Amino acid sequence: MLYNTAPDALFVPQTAVDPLGFGKVAIVTGCASGIGLAVAQLLLAHQFQVCGLDVAEFDYALLREADHGRFHFTRGDLTKPGACEDGVRVCAAAFGSRVDVLVNVAGVMDNFSSADGVSDELWDKVMAVNLTVPVKMMRSVLPFMKAKKDGVIVNVASTAGTSGAVAGIAYTSSKHGLIGATKNVAWRFRNDGIRCNAVLPGAVASDIGKTIIAGRSQLWDSDAFAQIEPVHALQAQPSAAAPTITALEVAKTITFLVSDQARTINGVSLPVDKAWGAV
């Protein structure tokens, strides 16, 4: 029953409909862990239908059982030819030929190597995952968004997207490039009802974050990391007053950018970094 038959009585609806995500479809890359998982969980909580893409297997135990019917997972390497297009096609087939939201989360870290030491293999891998895949994903969803004159894209960049003192040259270049791609898409499709923004997380609580804070890895370029380590020691060390940023906190920022509350925000790079970017 939509309406109360007694107009002088309090009307309490039997079910609550979340206007943020009800009837909408979101694609989340890198959904199996970290920020991607938190984004998928939060969007499902807002009643989105979510299509998750990841190279790793997904643990359905990390979702509420009630959300399983609104979540479709496809495992695959998005750097392979045609994989991005196939992922979007599968999502459109699963949820009714529409894509309302794309969140590009999938990314890989480099080994902190500098321009004089980065290998071709590492450069190609980092650029492919962190920059080429997000651009191909955006290319694949834009026809759906243009057709209905509405859509939101959020790219997960990094503090390294605006600073040269956070990571190696490959990761730094890829995230700078992703911010540029975000601005270009935002401007080009601003009159098509499409918004494209980026978030720039700082030191997020994750396995790689813990390793960076500890300052040790057999695979890192030790000389290059020695130049960056003081910055990480200054910015990435958690304390009671400034605890490490959680994946859920980044996901909440992304959800805000997806919402109508941010409908006039387009082409921005929003730091989620405890003022790291202010240095």
Rank of each mutant, 00 (worst) to 15 (best):
D273N: 09
R75N: 12
L37H: 02
A241K: 13
V250C: 01
V166T: 04
S114V: 12
F95G: 01
L122F: 08
A45P: 12
T264W: 08
D192Y: 04
V133K: 02
E229F: 06
K125L: 09
D86S: 11
H72W: 13
E249L: 03
G151H: 01
D260Y: 04
I228N: 01
T253I: 09
D110Y: 00
A278P: 12
N197T: 12
T74C: 14
T172I: 06
A275Q: 13
F112Q: 05
T264N: 14
T15L: 10
Q14A: 12
Q49Y: 03
L20R: 10
K146F: 04
T74I: 09
Y171D: 00
D110W: 00
L178D: 07
A115Y: 13
F71W: 07
D260S: 09
A247F: 01
I245A: 01
A167P: 05
F144Y: 12
Q41M: 12
A6C: 15
D124E: 10
P19E: 10
D18F: 08
V154T: 03
T74A: 14
D54I: 02
R139D: 14
V199I: 15
Q41H: 13
E57S: 15
H46W: 06
T253W: 01
I153P: 03
A275I: 08
A224C: 15
M1D: 09
S259F: 04
K136Y: 08
W276P: 02
G164V: 04
V90H: 11
G151W: 00
V39L: 14
K125A: 11
V135H: 06
K210I: 05
K146A: 04
L62T: 15
A224S: 12
G96M: 08
A262K: 06
V129D: 00
A251Q: 02
F11C: 15
V28K: 02
I213S: 03
Q261S: 09
A242W: 10
K125I: 05
C51K: 04
R75I: 10
E85G: 05
N184E: 08
A128I: 07
A224V: 05
E85R: 08
P230K: 10
G52N: 05
V17D: 11
K175N: 10
G168I: 02
K80I: 07
K210G: 14
G180Y: 00
Q235Y: 06
Y3P: 09
I169R: 03
K175A: 12
S158G: 09
A26E: 01
S259L: 10
Y3S: 15
Q14S: 15
L43P: 00
A61C: 14
A128G: 13
V103T: 03
V12R: 14
P13C: 11
W276M: 07
F48W: 03
C196E: 02
A241L: 13
L43F: 10
K175T: 08
N155D: 08
L2Y: 07
S119Y: 07
F112D: 02
W123R: 04
G76F: 06
Q261W: 11
A106T: 06
V12Q: 15
V17L: 13
K136L: 14
P201C: 06
M138F: 04
A275T: 06
G277M: 04
I245W: 03
F112S: 00
G277D: 05
K175Y: 06
K24R: 14
G30E: 02
N184Y: 05
C196L: 05
G151S: 03
D67Y: 03
S206R: 07
T79L: 07
A236P: 03
